[in-house]
Design a binder for these strands. Structure first.
Lengths: 236, 236
DNA sequence: CGCAAACTTGATATCTTTCAACGCGGGTGG
DNA sequence: CCACCCGCGTTGAAAGATATCAAGTTTGCG
C-alpha cells in the first residue's frame, strides 16, 4: 500500500533502478532523470507511437508500461522484434537515422518522457551505451529463439529474459511479474500461432515450469529452467 | 582479367565503395582506409576470429570474403545471426562491451585489417554510424524472416538482401554474385534444415526465381521478387 | 583415380498451422 | 439487475510445413 503510493509519486523509480544497475549514477545524473520524468506523458494502450518508415522517435525513457517494436507484412502478418519495458529506453539511437526501422506500439497504458541528455564520460552516458548493447543482445537472442528453438523453448526463454529484465528494474516480485500481453501478442513475438502458443503454455503449466493467470506470470524455477535451456544470463 | 588484377592490387576497393556509398568521404578519409588496408591479414576459411563470450574483436574492416556471426546452442544447434561481407565492418561497437555477443567465423578465406579511427564529424565517422544502423536493420529483417516467413520467402528475402549489399560494395555483377556459403551454412542462417533448404532451393530454381550453380547465385528478377515478397529496399 | 565434402532423394515422423466452434468474463445498455 | 456482446482464451480435427533418417550421387581436388 505504502509501496504503491511511493511508486506513483516517483514515476522514475523503474528507470533509476535500471539505469543505476547498468552504470554508477551520480546525484547529478539522478537529478536529470527526475527532472525529465517531471514532464511525463500518458498514452493509452494500442497507441502507435511511431510508424515504421516515418520519422523515428527521439530518445525516450519509458516510465511505466510496455512498448513493442513491430513490423507488419503486407498481408497482415505481424512480427514483434522486441519489447521495451518500464525503466528502459527506446527511440532513435543514431544521429544519421532518418526512418524508423520498426513501429513502436504501446501494449499497455504507458507513461514516457524525453530521455535526459548525457555528457560523454558521465555515468548516464555509460548507462545509455550499455542499454544499447543490451538491446543488441536481445535482438540476437531473439534470432536464436526464432531460428533454432521449438515452441516450448521459445516460450520459456523469452519469459526468462523478461523476468530478468523486470527484476533489474524492480518490477518483479520474486519470480512473479505482471504480464500485460495478450497471448496473441506473445505469439507474434515468438513467431507462433496464437492457437499453438496456447497449447504450448498449457503444456508448460502442466509440466510445472510456469503459471500464467489473470495477468501474472510466475516461473517456478527460473535458474533450473535457464540451465535446462542452455540459457546464460547477465551477460553484460 | 584486368579487373581482377586491379582488385587484387587494391584490397580496400570494396570497403571504399561501401563506405563511400554510406557517406561522402574526403581524400583524407580515403587515405586512412588505404593506410589501414596496407596492414592487412589473411585468415583461412573456418577460422574462428572471436569466440562468443570472449573479448570482442576490435573494430575491423573486412576487405575480402565473408564472416558469420553465430551462436552454438549446448546441444550443437547453430544459428547464424548475420553476415559481414567484403567492404563491411564488424567487431566491438561500444566502449563498454566486455564480451562478444556472438562468435565471428570466417566462412571463406578472408582478408581483414583494423578499421581506421574516425573523428566525430568526418565522413568516415558518419559512414560508421550508418554501418551500425544497417546492421541493426539486418538483425530486425532477420527476425521478421525467421518469425513470419516460410522457407521459400526466407530464402528469397535473404538472397535479395545479400545481392543488395554486394551491389553496394561493387561485389556483384548485375544480378549475379559469388556465393561462398555451403547450403548447410545458409540453412543455419535461415533457421532451416539443410535438407529442407535444398528442396526449397530446387523449388525456387524450378519456378525461375533464381539459379545457384558452382558458387554463383543469380536472381532473375530481383525487383519483381522483392515486390512479391513485400520487401522494401534501400531503407537507409 | 579415389577420397571427402557437399549436394540430392525418398520415406516417414513430428511439429505447427488452419479452420471452426465453444466458453468464459467483464463491460454496457436497456 | 439482467441480457447481450465482444474480446480473449480454449478445444478438436484435419491439413500443411518442416524435420529426421538413411541412402545415393555429384563435385572438387590431391
Amino acid at each position: 500500500m505504502l509501496k504503491r503510493t511511493y511508486a506513483v509519486s516517483r514515476p522514475e523509480q523503474a528507470a533509476v533502478r535500471r539505469l543505476g544497475s547498468l552504470a554508477r549514477l551520480t546525484e547529478h545524473d539522478l537529478h536529470k532523470i527526475e527532472q525529465a520524468a517531471a514532464d511525463a506523458h500518458f498514452l493509452p494502450a494500442r497507441t502507435e507511437i511511431v510508424r515504421e518508415g516515418a520519422e523515428p522517435a527521439k530518445p525516450t525513457l519509458l516510465l511505466r508500461g510496455w512498448v513493442a517494436q513491430q513490423r507488419i507484412l503486407p498481408d497482415g502478418r505481424r512480427q514483434i522484434a522486441g519489447f521495451t519495458l518500464a525503466g528502459e529506453l527506446f527511440g532513435r539511437n543514431w544521429s544519421c537515422q532518418e526512418r524508423a526501422l520498426t513501429s513502436q506500439v504501446a501494449l499497455d497504458d504507458i507513461v514516457l518522457c524525453a530521455a535526459p541528455e548525457a555528457q560523454p564520460g558521465s555515468g548516464l552516458f555509460e548507462a545509455y551505451e550499455r542499454e544499447r548493447l543490451a538491446q543488441r543482445l536481445q535482438l540476437i537472442d531473439n534470432i536464436t529463439r526464432l531460428g533454432r528453438m521449438d515452441a516450448r523453448e521459445r516460450v520459456c526463454d523469452l519469459l526468462l529474459e523478461l523476468l530478468e529484465r523486470l527484476q533489474r528494474s524492480g518490477e518483479a516480485e520474486g519470480n512473479t511479474f505482471a504480464m500485460p500481453l495478450t497471448q496473441e501478442c506473445f505469439a507474434d513475438a515468438l513467431g507462433l500461432t496464437p492457437v499453438h502458443l496456447n497449447r504450448t503454455l498449457q503444456a508448460c503449466r502442466r509440466s510445472g515450469d510456469l503459471s500464467w493467470r489473470s495477468g501474472k506470470v510466475t516461473l517456478h524455477d527460473p535458474i533450473g529452467l535457464a540451465r535446462s535451456l542452455g540459457r546464460r544470463s547477465n551477460r553484460l
